[in-house]
Write a protein that binds this DNA or RNA. Structure first.
Lengths: 337, 337
DNA sequence: GAACAGAATTGAAAGGTTTCAATCTCGAAC
DNA sequence: GTTCGAGATTGAAACCTTTCAATTCTGTTC
């Protein structure tokens, strides 16, 4: 297969000039119906495929948006991606997804490549939102929007959900239901989300006049189902009178693992252990003991982020904005007997 | 921001020729340490970002692989993607993900763009494996490998799992456990997977001497949690003596929805309704009644597909191969009381 | 039949990188 | 002091498309 005929070959085959072929491609109305017909046939015969590199080199711009996901296997992020996709489609851009799998190195490799590809904009849920490599990409001219994180300085657009508030909601809900010993399960401790939710939890806890010692943190290494199960074992190992009566998990993956392990150990949910998750992914509601969870507007998050990056890419008067959405507690069977 | 300095600017700034800058980029050993140093500094100062379009235009090849997923929100596919990613990384290629969201149009749009981008190869789980647009892409020279599907003729490499066998395993397992009335739940009926699993189920059922009327098909519109719930309602509506004692679901999403709905309707699992899912996604084991499921080697599927496409891209003697993996039934609580 | 307008087509330049043959620079060997 | 060779650097061509000013063609009007 002589890989790929060029515009020149098509022109020769159709007996027209190369400029005409280009016109057929880009301004079909400028060219008479029968030449157009002839050119199109030649393209089909030769299996012509427009060379996007050359197009882009000349035109200077690409028609794609990119989202660098933190963890493609977490449904939360695929829902965010879905929202981005919707907005991208509406703007007639295509979306490519990259997965950093929680690795800063992979993230940087992806960013570098996307930058070289001159994508219109990059959306990213970074491993570390304060990483300098994000600044550099932005400084060199590619619009960057941080998704589901924020950073202290306001040097980027970002779209996130108020995690401190989310933590507060979860704890208020549990205290309302009479729980007096609660575990917070999640990690790694450095992770922004994990910290904010913990902070919110603590704030609510002490605002309600509870002794700090009764809200304990059970760290995990990552936010996964397996880690949730593992935490469940640790809980099950505690003597019943010292065991918390409720757990607030930093995300639903952890909560689902915990739920599974608890039931497997004969701990009744919610009677002996109430569980609150975070994200409200679809599988949370679908768990056999449907999970109470702090819902984030996942698709909206993505859609908004896409709109911000497009604004930055096209609007000269763009100014950075930090959008913060409000989470909402969805009560289900895992906390309400 | 004067978007992007070129190699020429760098050359001028560093006081060297443009060829030398290119050498620094591509064959750093060919250039003396102090010029290299000088060039690198100039690059940093100017915020130089190599223009991938120009590179690719000249070099003719890109360093990326693409996977067009059928449904990014199904963990099965993200696991496959993970496997592809692993192989791509090993070959020093980067992977971009596209999501067709079950739409043939979107799939075609993605394919066209990827072809124009001259990606090294395309992996795709197609909406319809017999679609002619796949042939055209392949005919024009981009290696295409079909993932998790096969087509009748052998015009592509493909990597799939023996779905007929999978269906057989599920039914044999249920019959072994004494079930005599079983429902098969899944759809749309035209979908390859859905059909093959159903066929396997029927084969096993009659091979075991059961009357065909006792294996009923409950079609759904798509394979989702919501549809599973909906099917659950239909089942719950049946009078207990006519209700099947077991359900075999075309995938785990459906099975999880069914499980949830069953429990919500007070049907005990597995005592009153045994459930077998398909795919063995992580959430299957994590369900509060852990789900018996037909496991597919998801990551291996992806890895193998990536290897095939790489072979096709680089090896002149490449011949198409149809790899068929063997599924395996994982028995859990949803069928074993 | 000449002049003209408008539509269709053409040709050349430009865009940023890589490649490769050609040139240059040094120091070593005689 | 000359020659040689290795290593470093250079310059121009090539990759394929798009754009735009210039040219040709067609048909109308007076």
């Amino acid at each position: 297969m002589a890989r790929s005929a060029s515009v020149k070959d098509v022109a020769a085959a159709a007996g027209v000039s190369l400029g005409t072929v280009s016109n057929v491609l880009n301004r079909p109305d400028r060219v008479s119906p029968d030449t157009r017909e002839r050119v199109l046939r030649a393209m089909a015969d030769l299996g012509f495929v427009r060379n996007e590199s050359a197009r882009q080199l000349r035109a200077g711009s690409s028609r794609t948006l990119a989202y660098v996901m933190l963890d493609a296997s977490n449904p939360f992020f695929t829902d965010v991606a879905q929202g981005i996709d919707t907005a991208a489609e509406a703007a007639d851009l295509s979306l490519v997804l990259c997965n950093s799998r929680n690795s800063g190195d992979r993230e940087q490799a992806h960013l570098a490549l996307l930058e070289q590809q001159r994508v219109q904009g990059i959306l990213v849920t970074p491993v570390d939102p304060d990483s300098a490599s994000l600044d550099e990409v932005a400084r060199r001219g590619t619009p960057v929007v941080v998704v589901d994180r924020t950073r202290a300085d306001q040097s980027f657009c970002s779209v996130a959900v108020d995690d401190v508030l989310g933590g507060r909601l979860a704890i208020e809900h549990l205290v309302e239901r009479g729980h007096t010993r609660v575990a917070y399960i999640g990690g790694p401790p450095g992770l922004g989300q994990v910290e904010d939710r913990w902070r919110g939890a603590q704030e609510a806890w002490s605002a309600l006049g509870r002794p700090g010692a009764d809200l304990v943190q059970l760290p995990t290494t990552v936010l996964s189902v397996a880690e949730g199960r593992e935490a469940g074992q640790r809980l099950a190992g505690l003597p019943a009178r010292r065991r918390p009566t409720a757990a607030f998990c930093a995300n639903d993956l952890v909560a689902l693992g915990l739920l599974q392990q608890a039931i497997g150990s004969g701990i009744r949910v919610p009677e002996e252990l109430a569980i609150v998750g975070y994200d409200d992914i679809e599988f949370a509601a679908a768990a056999a003991v449907p999970l109470t969870s702090v819902r984030q507007p996942r698709q909206l998050l993505g859609r908004t982020a896409a709109e911000l990056v497009l604004d930055e890419a096209t609007n000269a008067e763009h100014t950075h904005r930090q959008v913060l959405f409000t989470p909402e507690l969805v009560a289900r069977a895992s906390t309400t007997s």
